[in-house]
Nucleic acid binder design. Structure first.
Lengths: 246, 246
DNA sequence: TGCGCTTTTCGTACATGTACTGAAAGTACA
DNA sequence: TGTACTTTCAGTACATGTACGAAAAGCGCA
């Protein structure tokens, strides 16, 4: 099973090699039409029905080429991600990991349907060309001295953090710009009841402005350094207060 | 603006104190009915229409008490999260942060609609009683020596990681148990084209089994330690390979 | 009392995703 | 050539979220 990037969603091939009616609509045509529609009317107007109409076929016909709406969006996104070329990455394993994770992040962060797709079952497995990103991160962790199991976990944690960052930030990015007033734009903290939070109140309204900053690289570095340190120290640190400051 | 946990979604209160027709349906009744419906027919059968029917009111009437479907789910989830009591947390700031983040995580991870709600604009701001979780994490970071800005960022990164972990794992948890065969259950890696990944192939099919493990605590510790180390070292580390091993 | 305002209620309508069903169109082999 | 089978195509139908707008019900004040 080398991925699911074959042509259609046909039922399992017939045992005796029967061929059947040839499709009049190819997957490439579908993706082209989808991009055409998006370019013309915007993302939010893309729907299965409109896409079928754009292609001049019946609505349900589309379901023979695409399992789901989620499947369609997955195709669009992974095809886009697959265009990110594999760069030459010299330097320490840690820095290769960070650079690669940043490439994943940037390739996916701009997608409006991130929330509908990034958490999809087997998302990573559906990457085609861009599986090199996964491989590079795992390889970097191994090069740094992680065990294979640790390396896989390193990728997993990076993926969690990346998905969370993309989804939380993407959500507010797609809100209408004037929602809630210009000073209340922090997607996390808007509407906080300050009377309950003496520590936050002590720092004034400053947190409101923090959301505008791109904090992904900073958090990523912290996470990667923490993961690598954890792996180097033999086993994960326990939550024991006496152990601090090694 | 002390949160949005007031009764209804009424248009801004009249300037002269006019009262209007009193509501026959309260927010508490709505949430009760929702829980009743969920308990009887399961989460996936909860819909605006069915909920209105359960309450014996018209469908659109519900929209006067609840702005959205997302708003409804937010109400359900935050009310649940608000029941998590604030524990006594002695020990180092780092451990208080970790313990609190774990409480947030556990309180939210079980929710089927996590993906529809956790990234909602101002989610944190809509927490009622449980804002103590936010405050505790920020306070812990400050106690550890972070600047206020750093402390807010610490919370933000923890939130990203937590949301990502919940969403990626929650998605696969709600899949039918037999989807894709029993050996292919890793939500991240199922369907990987192994021929492209020599390093992953080298570790065999081991990664398949890793998804069953609960890796949240481990990743959280790595992230928190990385963030606190970053804050202690004055400014975030750059991606410079010469700087490694301080 | 009645007028005007606010708030609540709800009927109708539309776009959407997709399940079900059967028709149409092609291929392999007799 | 014809028949059996496979695959593609499309029509209809249903549940859903929700926009729009009108009707109803309560309140304060003339």
């Amino acid at each position: 099973m080398a991925g699911r990037n074959d042509g259609t969603v046909s039922r399992r091939n017939a045992p005796h090699g029967r061929t059947g009616r040839p499709p009049v609509t190819s997957r490439a045509q579908i993706l082209d039409a989808a991009r055409r529609l998006i370019g013309r009317d915007g993302w939010e107007k893309l729907s299965i029905r409109r896409l079928a109409a754009e292609l001049g076929i019946g609505t349900m016909t589309l379901y023979h080429h695409v399992r789901d709406k989620e499947d369609l969006l997955l195709l669009l996104i992974t095809e886009y991600a697959d265009q990110v070329p594999q760069p030459d990455l010299p330097g320490e394993p840690r820095d290769r990991i960070i650079a690669t994770a940043t490439l994943i992040h940037d390739a996916l962060a701009a997608w409006p349907w991130a929330a509908e797709v990034l958490t999809a079952d087997g998302f990573i497995g559906r990457l085609g060309e861009s599986v090199w990103m996964v491989e590079t991160i795992v390889a970097g962790a191994i090069d740094h001295g992680c065990t294979p199991d640790q390396a896989v976990h390193v990728f997993r944690h990076i993926w969690y953090y990346t998905v969370g960052e993309i989804l939380v930030r993407a959500h507010s990015a797609h809100q209408p710009a004037d929602a809630g007033g210009p000073t209340d734009r922090d997607p996390l903290f808007s509407g906080l009841d300050k009377s309950r939070m003496p520590r936050l109140v002590a720092l004034g309204d400053r947190w409101r402005t923090l959301s505008a900053q791109d904090t992904y690289p900073q958090g990523l570095r912290a996470l990667v350094d923490g993961l690598l340190a954890q792996a180097s120290s033999g086993r994960p640190r326990q939550v024991a207060s006496a152990e601090r400051g090694e």
